[in-house]
């Protein structure tokens, strides 16, 4: 049997008509959403978008290239602070965004240099140290307002004729959609393949002609670039940034996001970021949840401490990390693929 195939199918963004249809529908819904829902929900989606962007970049590094970063909050911080500074200096938004992201990418590439010689455990320690060091350094620099932080100027979005929240929502979602598409293309290209080759066997990658150090550095740079963009937008979202915002725990939550979503998968990054953001918000007022909230308060009263309830967030994040690795190493994406396969065969 010989099938004459057009190989273009293999590199298209959408595998088939159905997925293209659903994607366009999804984008359409995103575009119309501001006219139907309250501003609060828009800001929830904005937060999700920020997490999606970081997750996309981190997943390229961790899931596709097989490196590790425990300091991604550091990159986000660099993006946020440099973006804020550039905009304060009067640079328009788009150039400021790109410049901040490029700066972050440059630092990412620099941090990637030790990765050329290091195996996993050492790299994880370096990146951990990096994340902490960034916060200390920024916290001591007067340009960035030191420990008190600095305010981020609002965007001039009046020309759109939309309320500020709505306009900001469009900025966030458009950026996110563009980055999702870029990531998909990148991973289908020779560059994405080279990343995955390095993940699976760096020795084999080098003998088939892949410049391993070049690509590892590049992967760090890309990952940092995404984090830089997310950081710059994060500043706009919060309107005020402090060193404490971008803590070590934030880095771990980013990691939890892609682990939960599914390592090495764009769908996973998106799913993971949406779910983690939602969970994070829900957990902040878990006491308000009908039945569960009462149970937790009662439990806290008798065994733990009611004033520390917010810490449930960390316990749950930790359990998610462990649980996914122990029971579903492919994360939500793996779960999704399995459900899809099940329904395709149903009812036979």
């Amino acid at each position: 049997m010989k099938l004459k195939r057009g190989y273009f199918e293999d590199i298209r963004i959408f595998r088939n008509r159905a997925s293209r249809f659903w994607t366009f529908l999804f984008i359409l819904v995103l575009a119309l959403l501001p006219f139907f829902i309250k501003a609060y929900y828009l800001s929830v989606i904005n937060l999700m978008a920020l997490n999606v962007i970081v997750a996309l970049g981190l997943n390229v590094l961790v899931g596709n290239t097989g490196q590790i970063s425990l300091g991604h909050a550091g990159f986000v911080a660099i993006g946020a602070y440099s973006g804020a500074l550039l905009m304060q200096l009067g640079l328009p938004f788009v150039p400021a965004l790109l410049l901040a992201a490029l700066l972050t990418a440059l630092i990412g590439a620099f941090l990637g240099i030790p990765s050329l010689r290091l195996e996993g455990p050492y790299l994880s320690i370096v990146t951990l140290g990096f994340g902490l060091a960034v916060m200390v350094i920024i916290g001591r620099m007067d340009v960035f307002g030191g420990r008190t932080g600095m305010s981020v100027p609002k965007l001039k979005l009046g020309w759109t004729g939309l309320p500020y929240d709505t306009a900001l929502y469009y900025v966030f979602t458009i950026t996110t959609v563009v980055l999702v598409i870029i990531t998909i293309i990148l991973l289908k290209s020779r560059i994405g393949r080279a990343f995955q080759a390095i993940r699976d066997s760096d020795i084999a990658a080098s003998v088939i002609g892949i410049n391993v150090s070049h690509y590892k550095t590049f992967s760090f740079a890309i990952s940092a670039f995404y984090a830089g963009i997310a950081g710059c937008l994060w500043g706009l979202y919060l309107q005020f940034v402090t060193p404490g915002t971008f803590s070590f725990m934030m880095s771990i939550i980013f990691l939890a996001t892609i682990v939960l979503g599914g390592l090495g998968s764009v769908t996973g990054s998106v799913l993971g970021a949406i779910v983690m953001t939602y969970l994070g918000l829900q957990l902040e007022n878990i006491v308000g949840v009908p039945v569960l909230g009462d149970v937790i308060v009662a439990f806290s009263d008798s065994l733990m401490n009611t004033s520390g309830i917010a810490n449930i967030k960390w316990v749950l994040t930790g359990l998610i990390l462990i649980g996914v690795i122990l029971f579903e190493p492919m994360g939500l994406n793996g779960l999704w693929l399995r459900v899809k396969r099940y329904w395709r065969l149903w009812p036979f």
Binding site: R190, Q196, A197, D200, S201, I203, A204, I208, I210
Partner: peptide
Amino acid sequence: LELFRYLTAVDNLLLGRHI
């Protein structure tokens, strides 16, 4: 054997075309 274990056969061969 030093193959790229989590990639498909086609992707492994395509990686051979990388250069």
